[in-house]
């Protein structure tokens, strides 16, 4: 299937029969095949390397342009250069902007010991910071350096900026897909999770189900919306609009397996350059959501970027929940019977 409209146009059964079905928990080898697609293409995803994000928000703009996502009004937050504030029905990409003024790693304010020289590190990588036009994938660590920001004389450079373009994670175990009562959310042949606008009845259940707070219900429209990983573009062999627009290749699109290899190499490269805080987030198929289809390279703890440190798909506990509810229902029935039993005289 290479036509995004087909599933959308026929709510009664255009999608393969079981694509709204959830998957057993644990790492999955092939989500699309297990969801009922025959001979699916490789699972596609995003690797967002935040160490080269420059916070330009081209991804936000490109996403809005391509997908016709309405604006959400202009609200100046005053907290940082981030006025988008978060993902939601009207923001499918969100560039987080973190301004840190204290020495990283939770140390108390004070003079910072001399850290690694980034210029030295960059030279070791074979590129120079001045050649910004070189292949973005091998770009130097750049401004948001890792564990120790470059401590110039006088301790004047404790401040650092972290930028990260957040997006729907397209989880392997997707809570939104699991709990959707209408089957509006389904698993595509690319292994992504897409919401069919013409089926959604706006119950809003996917909104609190998402462990990342990604899905939102649009004011005035009533339906839920989220990133589709540009399902229509993928069907036509194009990369998603945000990845296309990203000027530094911070947003990389491709087969998930390939992205994982690329990400591992990048982390090793950053660690070798002294950026000890570089870590991957959401790439492990062993995590609470079975791994993310869109994962990240971060330079600080996930919660600093507004991401949950250990997300778990809520439906992991659902069998236990149903069991408890059944026990409670039986108890209630017993309570009802007990209320009518005459006491022995």
């Amino acid at each position: 299937m290479n036509d995004g409209e087909r599933t959308a146009a026929d709510p009664a059964g255009g999608a393969p029969p079981d694509t709204h079905r959830s998957l057993p928990h644990g790492p999955r080898a092939d989500v699309a095949r297990e969801a009922g697609h025959r001979g699916p293409p490789p699972r596609m995803g995003f690797f967002t390397d935040t160490s080269v994000c420059i916070g330009c928000k081209a991804c936000e703009v490109a996403c809005k342009e391509w997908n016709g996502v309405p604006g959400h009004g202009l609200e100046l937050t005053g907290m940082s250069y981030d006025n988008t504030q978060g993902l939601g029905a009207n923001s499918w990409r969100h560039v987080a902007f973190v301004e840190q003024r204290t020495p990283p790693g939770g140390r108390e304010p004070g003079p910072v010991p001399a850290g690694p020289d980034v210029f030295e590190a960059a030279r070791a990588l074979g590129t120079s910071p001045g050649t910004g036009t070189s292949a973005p994938r091998s770009a130097p660590a750049g401004a948001p350096a890792g564990e120790d920001p470059p401590a110039a004389t006088g301790g004047r450079t404790e401040l650092r900026w972290l930028m990260s373009s957040d997006v729907c994670k397209h989880c392997t175990q997707a809570a939104c897909l699991d709990v959707c009562p209408t089957g509006a959310l389904f698993r595509t042949e690319f292994g992504t999770v897409v919401l069919q606008e013409d089926v959604c009845n706006g119950c809003g259940y996917c909104v609190p189900a998402c462990p990342y707070g990604v899905v939102g219900r649009r004011e005035g429209d009533g339906r839920a919306f989220k990133c589709t990983l540009c399902y229509d573009r993928l069907g036509a062999g194009l990369e998603p609009a945000c990845a296309k627009a990203c000027p530094t290749d911070s947003i990389q699109f491709g087969p998930l397996e390939e992205l994982r290899e690329r990400a591992a190499a990048r982390v090793a490269q950053l660690h070798a350059a002294g950026v000890a805080n570089a870590r991957l987030y959401g790439e492990s198929p062993e995590d609470g959501v079975g791994g993310d289809g869109a994962f990240f390279l971060l330079l600080d703890e996930p919660e600093v970027y507004g991401l949950p440190p250990d997300p778990v798909v809520t439906t992991r506990d659902l069998p236990a929940m149903w069991k408890q509810a059944a026990l409670a229902a039986v108890s209630l029935a017993a309570l009802g019977v007990a209320s009518f039993v005459r006491r022995p005289r």
Binding site: G78, M79, Q100, T102, P104, G105, G106, D300, E301, V304
Partner: peptide, 8 residues
């Protein structure tokens, strides 16, 4: 309102 580093 500042974002600070680390888990703790």
């Amino acid at each position: 309102r500042e974002a600070v580093t680390g888990a703790h």
